[in-house]
Simulated scan of single mutants.
Amino acid sequence: MEKKITPTSKTQKRNEMIKSAFDIFYKNGFHATGVDTIIDGTGISKRTLYKHFLSKEGLIIATLNYYHETRYKEIAGYIEKAVVENPVDKVLMIFDLLIKLVDAGNVNGCFAMNAKTEYAHKAAEIEAVCDLHINKLEMLVEKYLFEANITDSKAIATQVIMLFEGSILRSKAIQSSAPIKLAKKAAKVICSQS
C-alpha cells in the first residue's frame, strides 16, 4: 500500500527540520554549519531539505522566523502575565527574563543577533529578518514607555534595546548574567530621568 503524504505531515516534517536546524545553528553558528551537518542532524535527505528550502539561506531565514515567533511570544507573555502595574517595571522585565535564561544555561546569545553578526552586509534577506526581531522588541518596549507617559518614548526604547543587546553580547562572552543586571540598572536610570 502506498503511503499518502498529507499537507499536515508535510508541514510537520518542515517544522521538525526547522527546529533541528535551529538547534544546530544555535550551537555551532551559521557559517560553521554545513548542509551535510544539518542533514546528519535531522536525518533527512539533501533532496528533501532543498524541496522545503531552496537554499541554506532559506533554511536560516526559516529558523530565524521560528526564533522570532517563539522568543517574542515568550517575552511578551512573560511581561503580560506579570502582576506589575507600572509600565516602566514591565519594560525592565525583559532583563529579568534574560537573566533567567542565562542563569539556566542559555549562554549562546540572541539567535537573531548571532545571524546578523555573521551575515552583516552579506545577505540582505537574513539581515531583514534579524532586524524585524529587534524592531518588534523595541516596539514592545516603546508601547510600555508610552503608557508610562515617558517623554520621547521611541528614543528611550531604542536606548533600552541597545542596553539589552549589549548585555546579551557581554553575557555570552563571559557566560554570566552579571552584565544583564547592570544593563537593567542603567535602563531604570534612563527611564526614570525621562
Rank of each mutant, 00 (worst) to 15 (best):
K172R: 07
H121V: 13
G166D: 05
A82D: 07
Y144I: 07
N114H: 02
T117P: 02
N108E: 11
I94Q: 00
N28G: 10
D96H: 05
I38P: 06
H52T: 14
L54D: 15
T63Y: 11
V107M: 10
A186G: 01
F95M: 09
S177G: 10
L101K: 10
Q175M: 11
F30S: 05
Q193E: 01
N106C: 08
D103Y: 08
F146A: 13
K19M: 00
F164C: 10
I38L: 09
S192P: 08
A76R: 11
I5P: 01
G58A: 06
K3G: 07
N86Y: 03
A187S: 12
H68S: 13
V91I: 03
A76Y: 02
P179R: 01
S171E: 00
V107Y: 15
G43R: 14
C191K: 02
K172P: 04
T33H: 07
E147Y: 05
L92K: 02
V160W: 14
L97Y: 08
A123S: 15
N108R: 00
G41P: 06
V189P: 09
M162C: 15
E147I: 03
A157E: 04
I61T: 08
K188E: 04
L140W: 13
L137S: 00
H121K: 09
G109K: 01
A155S: 13
I99Q: 10
K56N: 13
M162S: 08
Y50D: 13
E16V: 09
L97C: 07
E118V: 00
V102R: 08
L132I: 04
L145M: 06
Y66S: 07
L98S: 03
T48D: 15
G29E: 02
N15Q: 03
A112G: 06
K143D: 14
